[in-house]
């Protein structure tokens, strides 16, 4: 028993209202923000004596970077769907950014700080790279699981 009226709101209007693009863009923006915040933070922490206005400037840059990272994180987890393909792309981006950040942190620490600074930078870099790798692995696993399901459903 089916009797459907033609909707006054068309499916195409719905599709236009749904943001289907830009998910990976958020991941890139967030990761870039985090990288800037960490690298500038490392420079800031290892600079021995700075005038007040430089402290304010460094603080502003770190806050802006963290702000973008937080905004992107909130958007990706609460506002937009992250499908399997997006998760894999976001994972690759995360690994690239975290790898670059880790190298940058260790270089800054090695040229400007002592052994403790190098060890701290290495540990931070390792945590970042591990987290990114975990994101990439879970993303790829989910995609593989869905591809298997698709193959089973299409009988191929």
């Amino acid at each position: 028993m089916k009797e459907f009226e033609e909707p006054t709101l068309s499916a195409d209007a719905v599709l236009a209202g749904l943001s289907l693009a830009g998910r990976v863009r958020y991941a890139a923006v967030g990761l870039a923000g985090l990288t800037v915040a960490l690298l500038v933070g490392a420079l800031w922490a290892t600079e021995p004596s700075l005038p007040l206005r430089t402290h304010v400037a460094f603080g502003g840059i770190v806050a802006a970077g963290l702000g973008w990272a937080g905004f992107a994180g909130w958007t990706l987890t609460r506002r937009v769907p992250l499908f399997a393909r997006d998760r894999v792309i976001a994972g690759v981006l995360a690994l690239t950014f975290s790898g670059a950040t880790a190298v940058g942190l260790v270089l800054v620490a090695a040229t400007r700080g002592g052994t403790t600074a190098v060890l701290t930078a290495s540990a931070t870099g390792l945590v970042l790279v591990t987290a990114a790798l975990a994101l990439l692995v879970t993303g790829r696993r989910r995609r593989a699981e869905l591809l298997r399901r698709k193959a089973a459903l299409t009988g191929r």
Binding site: L20, F83, A84, R85, D86, R143, L146, L147, R149, K150, L153, T154
Partner: peptide
């Protein structure tokens, strides 16, 4: 429908 949903979950626009 299940196939369509799985394709959506994979990210097929």
């Amino acid at each position: 429908t299940a196939l369509l949903v799985v394709r959506c979950q994979l990210g097929e626009r």
